[in-house]
Computed example of a mutant assay.
Amino acid sequence: MKPTTRGTLAAVVTGVAAAVGAAASPAVAADTVPVPVPLNGAEKSLGMELPEIGAELPLPKPGSPEGPRYVEGRLVPDRAVPQLPVRGGLPGADVRAPLPRLLGHDFDHVGVHAPASDLRTLGPGLAVDAPLTPPNPDNYGLPGLKPPQAGVVTPVLQTVPGAELGTGPGL
């Protein structure tokens, strides 16, 4: 391959990599994706005020699992199939609906704001042990028999959701 062809190819590959990296960085940096619900057309065709609705969808981010733990007296490490952590969130919502002065002259809308909240999960894991004991010096170095052990490590789900309900002037 000629040096000019090699240089041109390197410049093209560098340009494509830079363009792909620039296009992917905004999506990777965002924790949630806003989802507006457009009701303007229905509002104009019906000739009345409709609620304003918006939502936030969180992006799940997988983490790295903890490796197996070696326990004394067991042939197979503890948690042979590790739990996979995933960070994400619960979806959020923002709804504001018109209220035709039912509560007085200062109240024109009712709104619910439920922001997206963090969510931490761990998938189920598996803990097994072989039906053999470690080598026993009293038995000429041969392992003994024991009942096999198998267990499922339960999944974990942690979050703290919240919401606000309010009324006020204007929509």
Results as ranks from 00 to 15, higher is better:
Gly125Asp: 02
Arg96His: 06
Val35Glu: 10
Leu50Ile: 00
Asp31Leu: 10
Pro155Asn: 07
Pro62His: 13
Leu50Glu: 03
Pro38Val: 05
Arg96Ala: 15
Leu171Trp: 01
Leu84Pro: 09
Val160Met: 15
Val81Pro: 10
Asp94Tyr: 07
Asp106Leu: 13
Ala27His: 06
Arg120Asp: 15
Arg96Asp: 07
Leu145Ser: 15
Pro26His: 05
Pro169Asp: 05
Ser117Ile: 01
Leu59Gln: 08
Arg79Thr: 04
Ala42Asn: 10
Val28Gln: 05
Leu46Pro: 03
Lys61Arg: 14
Leu50Pro: 05
Arg87Trp: 14
Gln83Ala: 09
Pro51Arg: 02
Val76Trp: 05
Leu132Glu: 12
Ala163Leu: 07
Val110Lys: 08
Leu142Asn: 09
Val153Phe: 12
Ala150Phe: 09
Pro38Gly: 11
Asn40Pro: 09
Asp138Trp: 07
Ala93His: 02
Gln83Lys: 08
Gly162Tyr: 01
Leu50Phe: 06
Met48Lys: 13
Thr154Glu: 12
Thr159Ala: 12
Leu99Ser: 11
Pro137Phe: 00
Pro51His: 10
Pro161Phe: 04
Pro58Trp: 02
Ala130Ile: 09
Lys44Thr: 12
Pro124Tyr: 06
Pro124Ile: 02
Pro124His: 09
Ala23Thr: 11
Pro137Leu: 00
Leu103Lys: 03
Ser117Leu: 10
Ala116Arg: 03
Asn40Tyr: 14
Leu75Met: 12
Gly123Leu: 12
Gly88Met: 11
Pro134Tyr: 13
Gly166Thr: 07
Gly63Met: 00
Glu56Cys: 04
Gly168Leu: 01
Pro62Thr: 13
Ala23Asn: 15
Ala150Asp: 13
Gly67Ser: 05
Ala30Asn: 04
Val160Tyr: 09
Asn40Arg: 11
Pro148Gln: 09
Pro131Leu: 08
Pro161Met: 00
Gly125Trp: 00
Leu132His: 02
Leu50Tyr: 07
Pro62Leu: 12
Asn40Cys: 10
Gly170Trp: 01
Leu142Cys: 08
Gly92Leu: 00
Tyr140Met: 05
Gly41Glu: 14
Pro60Ala: 05
Thr159Asp: 06
Pro38Lys: 10
Ala97Glu: 02
Met48Thr: 14
Val112Phe: 14
Ser45Gln: 14
Asp129Lys: 06
Ser117Cys: 11
Leu75Lys: 11
Asp78Val: 08
Leu103Tyr: 02
Pro135Asp: 03
Leu103Cys: 01
Thr167Glu: 14
Leu122Phe: 15
Pro38Leu: 07
Val128Tyr: 03
Leu46Ile: 03
Arg74Tyr: 03
Asp94Ala: 12
